[in-house]
Amino acid sequence: DNLVIALHSYEPSHDGDLGFEKGEQLRILEQSGEWWKAQSLTTGQEGFIPFNFVAKA
Rank of each mutant, 00 (worst) to 15 (best):
D1L: 10
D1T: 09
D1H: 10
D1K: 08
N2D: 11
N2I: 12
L3S: 02
L3E: 04
V4L: 05
I5E: 05
I5Y: 11
L7T: 08
L7E: 05
L7V: 08
L7D: 02
H8W: 14
H8D: 08
H8N: 08
S9H: 08
S9N: 09
Y10E: 00
Y10A: 02
Y10Q: 03
E11G: 07
P12K: 08
P12E: 04
H14R: 15
H14G: 13
H14P: 02
H14D: 09
D15S: 12
G16F: 10
G16K: 08
G16R: 09
D17G: 13
D17C: 14
D17N: 09
D17T: 11
L18S: 03
G19N: 04
F20K: 00
F20V: 06
E21T: 13
E21K: 14
E21A: 13
E21Q: 13
E21P: 02
E21C: 13
K22W: 04
K22F: 07
G23Y: 05
E24K: 00
E24G: 00
Q25D: 03
Q25P: 11
L26Y: 02
R27K: 10
I28A: 00
I28H: 00
I28N: 00
L29C: 06
L29S: 02
Q31G: 08
Q31D: 11
S32W: 11
G33S: 06
G33T: 04
E34R: 13
E34A: 12
W35S: 07
W35H: 08
W36D: 01
W36N: 01
K37V: 11
K37S: 05
A38F: 03
A38Q: 01
Q39H: 07
Q39F: 08
S40L: 05
S40Y: 01
L41R: 02
L41K: 00
T42R: 15
T42M: 11
T42Q: 12
T43W: 01
T43H: 02
T43I: 01
Q45P: 00
E46S: 12
E46Q: 13
G47H: 01
G47A: 01
G47V: 02
G47F: 06
F48M: 12
F48A: 05
F48D: 04
I49S: 00
I49G: 00
I49P: 01
I49D: 03
P50D: 05
P50G: 02
P50S: 04
F51Q: 11
N52C: 13
F53Q: 06
F53D: 04
F53T: 06
V54S: 00
V54C: 07
V54L: 05
A55P: 04
A55R: 09
K56D: 11
K56Y: 15
K56T: 13
A57S: 10
